[in-house]
C-alpha cells in the first residue's frame, strides 16, 4: 500500500518536495502526549550526556573535604576553590604540555590541510598518466588505520631517529586520504570557467590554485581545519608511542601521566579536585572551538562519513 503511494507520487511530474513544503512544514505541531513523552526521553538522555562534565567541573572547584562529604548529594560547591586550577596547572606541568600541544597541533593541522589541498587539486578534473593509480593509492590508505600500523610506525619512527621529537608527533599525521577525497570533490564543484578565465589572463597552475581555488573553498577548508585540529589535539596513542621525555609530552599524554600519579614525586595519585581541574583545562580549547564554530562542525560531520 505504501509502496503504491510512493510509486504514485513518483509518477506525477513536477511534484517535488518544495511544492508540498507548505503542507508538511507549515502546519503547526500540536502538543500531544506522544510528543511530550519524546521530549522527556530526549531531555533525560541529554542530561546524561552533560552531567558527567558538569559534575567534573563542580568537583574541580570544591575542596577535598567537601568532595568526600558531598558525593552525589550537593552539586554547587560551598566555597569556590579556583586555586585548584593553579595547583593542577603547576603540578601537572600543564603550561609546558599546553604549549607542546598547541605547537604540534597547529603545525600538523596547517601542514595536513595544505598537503591534502595540493594533492586534491592535482587530482581534480583532469586525467593524466598515473592519476588513477594515485587516487587508488590515496583511497587505499583509508583501510590502514593508525591503530593497526601503530607498532610498525613506531619501528619506522625509531629508524628515522624521530622518537622523542616533535617531528615524530607531526610527520605521521601530515596527510589524510579522506580529506583529499573530500577536497577533490569540492574542487570539482567549482565552475571550471573560473579556472579557464584565470589561465587566459596568464595565471599559472600554482597561481590559480592559491588565488582562485583556495579562497573559493574556504567553507570546505574550514571544516577540514576543524576536524584536523580536533584529531591532532585529541591524539593519544601517537604521543604514547613516540614520547618518553615528559618535557615533550602533549597535553593528552601529560594529563594521563598526571592522573596515573606519574608526575608526582611520591607516585601518589593527585587529589580528585585537581585532577578534574586538569581535565577541564584539557577540554577547554576544543569546547571553545566547538561553540564558536558549531556551524562548520555540524556541516562537516555529515559531509564526513556519508560520502565515504
Amino acid at each position: 500500500m505504501v509502496v503504491r503511494a510512493v510509486r504514485r507520487i513518483m509518477r506525477i511530474p513536477g511534484m517535488r518536495s518544495e511544492n508540498l513544503a507548505y503542507i508538511s512544514g507549515g502546519a503547526r505541531k500540536q502538543l500531544t502526549p506522544g510528543r511530550v513523552a519524546v521530549f522527556l526521553i530526549i531531555t533525560i538522555g541529554a542530561i546524561a550526556m552533560v552531567v558527567p562534565f558538569l559534575w567534573a567541573f563542580t568537583i574541580s572547584l570544591k575542596s577535598m573535604s567537601e568532595v568526600y562529604r558531598s558525593v552525589g548529594r550537593q552539586f554547587i560547591p560551598d566555597s569556590w576553590h579556583w586555586e585548584n586550577y593553579l595547583l593542577a596547572w603547576r603540578s601537572a606541568h600543564l603550561l609546558r604540555a599546553f604549549m607542546n600541544s598547541l605547537f604540534v597541533t597547529t603545525v600538523s593541522t596547517a601542514g595536513e590541510v595544505l598537503i591534502c589541498a595540493l594533492a586534491a587539486y592535482a587530482l581534480a578534473r583532469t586525467h593524466f598518466p598515473g592519476s588513477r593509480f594515485f587516487m587508488v593509492a590515496f583511497l587505499s590508505t583509508l583501510m590502514i588505520s593508525f591503530q593497526v600500523i601503530a607498532i610498525p610506525t613506531y619501528i619506522v619512527l625509531r629508524d628515522l631517529r624521530l622518537l622523542d621529537t616533535y617531528g615524530g608527533l607531526i610527520f605521521p599525521g601530515l596527510a589524510n586520504g579522506f580529506f583529499i577525497f573530500l577536497l577533490k570533490n569540492y574542487f570539482e564543484e567549482i565552475p571550471h570557467e573560473l579556472e579557464e578565465a584565470a589561465t587566459m589572463d596568464g595565471s599559472s597552475f600554482v597561481g590559480t590554485f592559491f588565488r582562485i581555488i583556495m579562497p573559493l573553498s574556504a567553507p570546505a577548508l574550514a571544516t577540514i581545519v576543524i576536524f584536523s585540529f580536533v584529531g591532532h589535539w585529541n591524539a593519544f596513542m601517537l604521543p604514547l608511542l613516540v614520547i618518553n621525555d615528559p618535557k615533550r609530552a602533549t597535553l593528552q599524554y601529560a594529563l594521563q601521566l598526571y592522573m596515573m600519579g606519574g608526575t608526582s614525586d611520591t607516585g601518589n595519585l593527585p587529589p580528585l579536585n585537581e585532577q578534574m581541574a586538569a581535565v577541564i583545562i584539557t577540554m577547554a580549547p576544543i569546547l571553545i572551538l566547538f561553540f564558536t564554530l558549531q556551524r562548520y562542525f555540524m556541516k562537516g560531520l555529515t559531509l564526513g562519513a556519508l560520502k565515504q
Binding site: 598537503i115 591534502c116 595540493l118 594533492a119 587539486y121 592535482a122 587530482l123 583532469t126 593524466f128 598515473g130 592519476s131 594515485f134 593509492a137 590515496f138 601530515l174 596527510a175 583529499i180 599559472s204 597552475f205 600554482v206 590554485f209
Partner: peptide, 10 residues
C-alpha cells in the same frame, strides 16, 4: 606541476 603537488602527500 600536478606531480609536484602530489609529491608531499605521496
Amino acid at each position: 606541476m600536478r606531480y609536484l603537488f602530489l609529491l608531499p602527500a605521496l
